[in-house]
């Protein structure tokens, strides 16, 4: 057998397996795509309902979504998804996933819900790399600290008091970890500022619109 012929056969074998493999992966992908999307929607809905009870709104929040780019307020250059809850067409609450860029070991991703009147429905941590045992107290599974945000707004406490106690504010810090709660408090406050100045636009833009709100 000439070398050329043997190379050709080897190439054919590889092509054959690549084709079969691609078909198998494509079939799995198409048959699981909808189930995966549904599972992700359900998981998102479950975490949103932790902040705002499902009976407070009547639209499909997960589909009433826009994307905004607002680095100074949301802590990231990436587009951030904003979800709107409504009842009978009236604004009820906004959800978004702003980032606290100044965590102790990198950015902390939050989920924040704000009622239309400016009061916080609550804050949760979606992803973080804070030190286990110290900074990870921001995680609801580790400590109830993050639950204290529910009901707070820019009027309660006054904007000057939106700090951890060590800095003269009203929010607790953890023993041995001040930077992490400080970052979360700051990011939450910035998001409240953003909602206060952009509320009408955030509720008015039609779903799935992308781009910058000015």
């Amino acid at each position: 057998m000439t070398p050329l012929r043997s190379m050709g056969i080897a190439a054919l074998i590889l092509t054959g397996f690549a084709t079969v493999g691609t078909v198998l992966v494509a079939v799995t992908y198409t048959s699981t795509k909808d189930i995966i999307a549904e599972a992700q929607r359900a998981a998102l809905e479950a975490s949103l309902n932790q902040l705002v009870p499902a009976d407070r709104y009547d639209n499909r929040v997960v589909e009433d979504q826009i994307e905004v780019v607002a680095p100074e307020w949301l802590g990231t250059d990436e587009p951030v998804a904003v979800y709107r809850a409504r009842k009978n067409g009236q604004p009820v609450a906004l959800f978004a996933t702003p980032t606290a860029p100044d965590g102790y070991s990198g950015p902390i991703q939050l989920l924040v819900g704000v009622y239309a009147d400016g009061a916080l429905a609550g804050v949760r941590v979606l992803a973080h790399k804070e030190t286990p045992g110290l900074g990870d107290g921001i995680d609801e599974k580790r400590s109830p600290w993050i639950l204290a945000f529910a009901g707070k707004s820019l009027e309660n406490p006054w904007p000057d008091a939106w700090k951890v106690k060590k800095d003269g504010g009203v929010f607790d810090q953890f023993t041995g970890a001040t930077i992490t709660p400080r970052a979360v408090v700051k990011a939450t406050r910035k998001f409240l500022d953003y909602v206060r100045t952009h509320r009408e636009q955030l509720f008015a833009v039609p779903p799935t619109a992308k781009g910058q709100l000015s």
């Binding site: 074998i13 590889l14 493999g21 198998l24 799995t28 699981t32 995966i36």
Partner: peptide, 22 residues
């Protein structure tokens, strides 16, 4: 060929886990 077979199997298992054990 091993690499391709294993990559396909892992991708399929990953998608299945994502769908059924999110």
């Amino acid at each position: 060929v091993f690499v391709m077979v294993i990559a396909c199997v892992v991708t399929a298992v990953e998608l299945a886990m994502h769908a059924f054990l999110p």
